[in-house]
């Protein structure tokens, strides 16, 4: 299988005043297309940092990251933005929806940046909301939705430009286990449809559904399996 994601000795160092924080200290990771992966580890072990780098929100301080064979470390801001727009869909623990627009508009937002024509945009947004089980919540504002529903809107938004990779940082962190389970089923379905799904999580029931678990500790991969 070809490597969609390949990291070699990736380090990420943050400068906090005088002190340096080594969030990642030499991470080697290979992920193939279509894999379903969970990233686990104690708080502060660098899970989010790793995810940000995979998602091209940030670049490594040291080491190499190749995405589909391309060297991300060499890219400028616009190129990274372009990759995020077309290849990556993000799902955040706190949803991060725009509060002043409806569910469908939130879902359509990435398509605006991707220059999708208006009519297609709305149609596709509605389809995606139907897919995540929100057919009757299309015109609701985020404040009128429950946590689980909001997270499903976020997933629909992540899917709107039909990305190759879905990255979720603690997607169930703010949900009870029943609702969380519902959200996980959507991720599972996406995996079955062939998407590469990577989920950062604390919860066992979430991590256990993945095909492969990457365990981080102190910015290093402790265990892969």
């Amino acid at each position: 299988m070809s490597n969609l994601i390949e990291m070699k000795k990736v380090k990420k160092t943050y400068q906090l005043g005088e002190t340096e924080v080594h969030a990642l200290q030499g991470v080697n990771v290979k992920i193939s297309k279509g894999e379903f992966i969970s990233i686990v580890g104690p708080s502060g072990s660098g899970k989010s940092t790793l995810m940000h780098i995979i998602g091209c929100l940030d670049i490594p301080s040291e080491g190499a990251y190749h995405l589909q064979g391309e060297d991300v470390g060499e890219m400028n801001g616009d190129q990274l933005a372009d990759i995020r727009k077309k290849f990556i869909g993000f799902v955040f623990q706190d949803f991060y929806l725009l509060s002043d627009v409806t569910a469908w508009y939130n879902v359509a937002l990435p398509m605006i940046y991707n220059r999708v024509p208006p009519r297609t945009r709305k149609e596709r947004a509605i389809n995606l909301l139907e897919e995540v089980g929100l057919a009757d919540r299309i015109n609701h504002l985020p404040s009128q939705l429950s946590g689980g529903e909001r997270q499903r809107v976020t997933i629909a938004r992540a899917l709107s430009n039909n990305p190759e990779i879905i990255l979720a940082d603690e997607p169930t962190g703010n949900l009870d286990s029943v609702t969380g389970e519902g959200v996980m089923q959507i991720f599972y379905k996406l995996h079955e449809e062939g998407k590469t799904v990577i989920i950062v999580t604390h919860e066992h029931y979430v991590a256990d559904q993945a095909e492969r678990k990457i365990r981080l500790k102190d910015g290093m991969i402790e265990d892969e399996g």
Binding site: G77, D78, A81, K85, F90, Y96, Y113
Partner: peptide, 16 residues
């Protein structure tokens, strides 16, 4: 700031 972060995460360029 958060909103700007989200827009960037979903692919907005700096110029946008």
């Amino acid at each position: 700031t958060r909103e700007i972060g989200v827009r960037k995460a979903i692919g907005a360029k700096s110029s946008e």
